[in-house]
Amino acid sequence: MTDSPVTAACKIRAAQQDLPAKLQLCGVRKRFGRNDVLRGVDLTVPAGKSLVVIGGSGTGKSVMIKCILGLIAPDEGSILVDGEETVNIDGKARSRMMSRFGMLFQGAALFDSLKVWENVAFGLIHGRHVEKEQARQTALEKIRAVGLKEEVGDLFPAELSGGMQKRVGLARAIAANPEIIFFDEPTTGLDPIMADVINGLIVDCVTDLGATALSITHDMASARKIADYVAMIHEGHIIWHGPIADLDNSGSAYVEQFIHGRAEGPIAVNK
């Protein structure tokens, strides 16, 4: 099938990157009613690297990640995964694409009615049709990998603390050994020590799997720990993008204000 001009241009752009692009976003736009959330997002995530998108609340971080996952359809633009267009695909093609992704949701999004091990094995059993016993063994292995005891597998999510739920969410995200893992505010709502534990687990899991990671956060400690590259989104645009080592010398007044958490600066604060 012939590529649309937008897709073709995006493929050229992906090919021009220094490192091979696992994920390439070109001119992604999304509007809800009169609210222009994404206003042409361009972003490259190199294969095998961890990119963290930082930005204030309501700047379009979650919408961007949901567009990439296909949970929200963008109004315009192109999203390539390994050079393959993912916008407007559905049915089996979408399902195939989803099987390459893992996602850790902000609130973990565990299924209340299922035991912990069933949550972790859910994608294996229902998405990949793995035998139940084999899926259970894989789930228990992943539960151990995120630092929880095997016995936790027989509890229900409501019986776990917030930090444990995040770990189970992480175990579920990595259960099927995905190529790309998305982390939506992985440390929100956790105390600093537990946040550091989760950050460490994210780094370990991504490194062990050799996966590409895309995280969104406004927790700078988390960003510094898990990122190879950082991008900053503001008012629906990527306004700065670079290696984590350059973050403190970005030369962008917006980035400076954000990483130092100052109320004064170019980013207007709604009082």
Partner: peptide, 18 residues
């Protein structure tokens, strides 16, 4: 509201069927 339906989709499960 707790994103469990989104989680189903990311695990390649159709919420209409499940």
């Amino acid at each position: 509201v707790t994103e469990q339906i989104d989680a189903l989709k990311t695990l390649s499960v159709n919420p209409f069927q499940y």
